[in-house]
């Protein structure tokens, strides 16, 4: 019977990235990985057409401030383009989710091995469960 090894999360999986403080406390994980769920699809231009190799910017996300005094604030906004706003929330998962990837082998983790590992365990996700609402252009507000 074919089988595969699944390693538990690595204890020192710190991203070493100060940008991690970007996320609110509830979303923060050692590796910096988080889950974002949107009802619907985001259409990005295919690279063959645009020739683009870079990450494709789709908008801005506004996360709740890192204010321990206001832990109740879970609202998240995402502005796509100039006229659409998505309202979402930080949602606690009923069951935490393990993010699994192939284990990196070799010098500098260049090669992928047959073994799997849990890259991160997340307890919250950013959920946009509603349709986008129209907002006025930036100049109007």
């Amino acid at each position: 019977m074919p089988s595969a090894i699944l390693h538990p999360p690595c204890a020192n999986r710190l991203s070493g990235d100060t940008a991690n403080t970007l996320l609110p406390q509830t979303l923060r994980t050692p590796s910096g990985l988080a889950i974002l769920e949107i009802q619907g699809t985001i259409n990005t231009p295919s690279n063959a057409a645009s020739g683009q190799q870079q990450a494709h910017p789709i908008g801005k996300i506004v996360l709740p401030p890192n204010d321990p005094a206001k832990p109740v604030d879970k609202r998240v906004y995402m502005y796509v383009g100039k006229h659409q706003r998505l309202t979402g929330e930080l949602k606690k998962l009923t069951n935490p989710i393990a993010i699994i990837q192939r284990r990196k082998d070799g010098v500098g983790g260049a090669e992928e091995s047959d073994e799997l590992e849990i890259a991160e365990i997340v307890h919250y996700k950013i959920l946009f469960a509603h349709r986008p609402e129209p907002v006025g252009g930036g100049g109007d507000e």
Partner: peptide
């Protein structure tokens, strides 16, 4: 507020990594 948030970007498909999600009881 709009300007205070970080930009959200999507990596092109061929640069995306492969992950599986597993619910943990």
């Amino acid at each position: 507020q709009d300007e205070s948030g970080p930009e959200i970007r999507i990596l092109p498909e061929e640069h995306q990594q492969h992950f599986r999600l597993l619910e943990l009881p």
